[in-house]
Design a protein around this nucleic acid. Structure first.
Length: 703
DNA sequence: CGAATTGAGTTTTTT
DNA sequence: ACTCAATTCG
């Protein structure tokens, strides 16, 4: 695209954001205000007009998917290939840097990346060793993760002990953990960021090189950066100060994993010459949706004021349904979706159902299935978290690095090869005594005299196996996997589904070396799923970030779920829950349906629920407020703020009931939808076919 | 050492 | 309600 066009198709604020190319810039981009457009156009502008090479631009996004999409859009804007570009998540970018630079910290450049599961199992192991209550491992893991996200190294943490002993213990675990990672030549997710910053801080000459290379820094979703990530971009930008960050404090929903909205204030303070541009025109939603979401979010006390507007007009009212039980809620949604579909203006792919926690999807799935509505869960359990996948990956890691203790522990007896707890214990002891890796400890035991022949044989078998795999390093990855599975007998007794997963893993490993494959696998935690085609999308509110749908349902708007009860005693977290709802609401382009249930099963208990407190802030004038009473056949619409008269909605013809039509005779009702005078019935008349009739004129007779 | 039974904890969100 | 893990039994 020619440069003029890059600029012309932007509104004045977007244009300002694009043209400000010297010095720091903060773009406060409200939901749906076209921020991706600004970033991609700016990228194109910088490369075309300012003659920067893609390798001079450092761009970070929140997810891999966002990175891919951004690359794609830039390519089509500039109609050229993007080679040597630096567009990716913080983790992917840091990985790339560390592969080149980590030697200075004493790691080898072939380090592996441990995911959360690996991290937890290592911490668990350390707790057991240090005789600390093992069940704490999750909490400890998340504390350590937070420390790393705040750039607090073990050494620094020790010096700030609370004097009660607990922190001292934590510090001990932290130290051990970090030590053990290094021995295994492994980094966890947080290390990727923390260690990159460490390299930059301790080796200014390296930092300088990168500062020179990256002449412009672009950061997306800035409100969700943690302190370490902030430090990273700050360091990179501190020379030329050419940095644009895009964010929306109202959409900050990752505090629980260390994101700090404060980074926006930090940014203002650290770069005093900062220019701020607000993008307030919304290109996504109707005015009603903006009014409702806007009034919900404005109840948050601390936020940058924004007033989003649109020229799309009022649109449909936002609906709220209050139903007796979660099953009723699910059924009602399924029914509504059917109605919408039958009206013919929308396909299933236009619809998303959002919820707070994964477990809520169950009831909805059931109802959708019953109504034969195709759906797909987006972002459920990660592909790479499945047991069989993690096992294979552990084998692959050992191919690259046999001293990877976490991976070795994982597969030492999988599939079972007669190495049980007793033997493992012995190996651990040996490794500790000699200060060597588990792998070397096994070899040492084999050479020693202290064990029975049968134990030694089994251990030798494992060592030979691993050595054999290691020798295959140069083969193609699928071949190596095949070999592993054959030689270990891993596939024996595995369910069809699991085998299928392994086959999928092999297919996706086609064409990359083991190292590259492991890299990709650990950073792209889920196969970049495209949104399902012509299916209703089900996902959590978090997952919905960055997406948009013509029609959005948000379910379970009840106290305890939304806001989630764990947030009850923290003002900050309640604000975050509110933002989460806001993010969900602003995904909707045309229609937004909210709902809740009076009774819900949670952890096998039937609970009385109250409507979410957030609903109190919804202006009734934008809404249709419907409470379905206990009696099944009676729905009462409460008076709305602007004095609408209560309307009772009846469904006179249930699906499956028989009716007589003056012309077509007897038929079976397939569906019944719409309300008031617009009520439509869908009837199948044998020998005539399916007819859609306006109830008002059809003269149907119930029989 | 492995299988089976019991028991506990679990369910917020993710790179 | 359900899954995962530890413990116990064979």
């Amino acid at each position: 695209m020619a440069t003029e066009n890059l600029i012309d198709c932007l509104n004045p604020q977007q244009r300002e954001a694009l043209l400000h190319t010297e010095g720091p810039l903060l773009i406060l981009a409200g939901a749906g205000s076209g921020k991706t457009r600004v970033i991609t156009h700016k990228y194109a502008y910088l490369t075309q007009k300012k003659k920067l090479k893609p390798s001079n631009l450092f761009t970070v996004t929140f997810t891999n998917k966002a990175a891919e999409e951004m690359k794609h859009r830039i390519c089509s804007l500039t109609s050229s290939e993007l080679k040597e570009c630096w567009i990716g998540t913080f983790h992917a970018q840091c990985n790339r840097i560390l592969r080149k630079e980590i030697k200075v910290l004493g790691y080898k450049p072939e380090f592996v990346i441990y995911d959360e599961g690996d991290q937890q199992s290592l911490i668990r192991h350390i707790l057991r060793e240090l005789n600390i209550y093992e069940a704490l491992y999750k909490g400890v893991a998340s504390r350590i993760s937070n420390l790393k996200a705040s750039m607090i190294t073990p050494e620094r943490f020790i010096s700030s002990g609370d004097g009660y002993g607990f922190d001292e213990k934590l510090a001990k675990v932290y130290m051990r953990y970090q030590d053990e990672l290094k021995r295994c030549n492994a980094l966890d997710f947080d290390d990727l960021i923390m260690l990159t910053v460490k390299v930059f801080e301790e080796f200014p000459e390296i930092l300088e090189r990168y500062q020179e290379r990256f002449q412009y820094i672009l950061v997306d979703e800035f409100q969700d950066t943690n302190y370490a990530q902030y430090m990273l971009v700050k360091l990179l930008a501190s020379g030329h100060k050419n940095i644009s960050v895009v964010g929306d404090d109202d959409q900050s929903i990752y505090r629980f994993r260390g994101a700090e909205v404060r980074n926006i204030q930090r940014f203002e303070k650290d770069f005093p010459e900062l220019r701020i541009v607000k993008l307030e025109q919304n290109y996504r939603s109707t005015q009603n949706i903006l009014d409702v979401s806007g009034s919900v979010i404005s109840a948050n006390p601390v936020r940058k004021k924004k007033s989003l507007w649109t020229d799309k007009g009022k649109g449909e009212k936002v609906h709220f349904y209050w139903l007796p039980t979660e099953d009723d809620e699910a059924k009602y949604i399924a029914k509504l979706i059917r109605d919408i579909y039958l009206k013919g203006k929308h396909s299933f792919g236009d619809i998303a159902i959002l919820y707070r926690i994964n477990l809520q999807s169950r009831a909805i799935e059931e109802a959708l299935r019953r109504e034969r509505i195709p759906y797909r869960i987006v972002g459920g359990i990660s592909f790479y978290e499945r047991k069989e996948i993690k096992d294979i990956i552990s084998y692959l890691r050992l191919v690259v690095n046999p001293h990877d203790n976490v991976s070795l522990r994982r597969i030492i007896n999988t599939p079972s090869r007669g190495i049980g707890a007793a033997t493992l214990n012995k190996i651990e002891q040996e490794s500790k005594r000699k200060g060597i890796s588990l792998f070397d400890a096994i070899i040492s035991i084999c050479n020693g005299k202290s064990s029975t022949q049968s134990v030694v044989d089994r251990l030798k078998g494992l060592v030979d196996l691993l050595r054999e795999f290691s020798a295959l390093k140069k083969e193609s990855t699928p071949e190596i996997i095949t070999h592993i599975i054959e030689k270990t007998g891993y596939a024996e007794g595995l369910s069809e589904e699991r085998l299928q997963n392994i086959a999928e893993l092999m297919a996706s490993s086609e064409g990359s070396s083991v190292k590259d494959f492991l890299d990709r696998v650990s950073l792209v935690t889920r196969l970049d799923e495209n949104l399902p085609d012509n299916m209703v999308s089900l996902m959590t509110l978090h997952t919905a970030k960055g997406l948009e749908f013509p029609i959005v349902f948000i379910v379970g708007l009840e106290e305890g779920l939304m806001p989630y009860f764990k947030a009850f005693d923290s003002e900050e977290e309640l604000c975050e829950e509110r933002r989460l709802l806001y993010v969900g609401m602003t995904r909707a382009k045309e229609m937004l349906f909210l709902s809740g249930a009076r009774k819900r099963r949670i952890f096998s208990k039937l609970q009385e629920q109250e409507p979410s407190r957030f609903l109190a802030d919804v202006p009734r004038s934008c809404c249709r407020w419907i409470e379905k009473a206990f009696c099944r056949h009676e729905k009462v619409e409460k008076a709305t703020g602007n004095g609408k008269k209560p309307v009772s909605i009846k469904i006179p013809y249930k699906t499956g009931c028989r009716v007589r039509h003056p012309k077509w005779g007897v038929g079976v009702v397939r569906d019944c939808y719409g309300e008031g005078d617009d009520m439509k019935v869908c009837v199948n008349f044998p020998g005539v076919g399916i007819k859609r009739l306006a109830l008002k004129f059809a003269n149907l007779e119930r029989i």
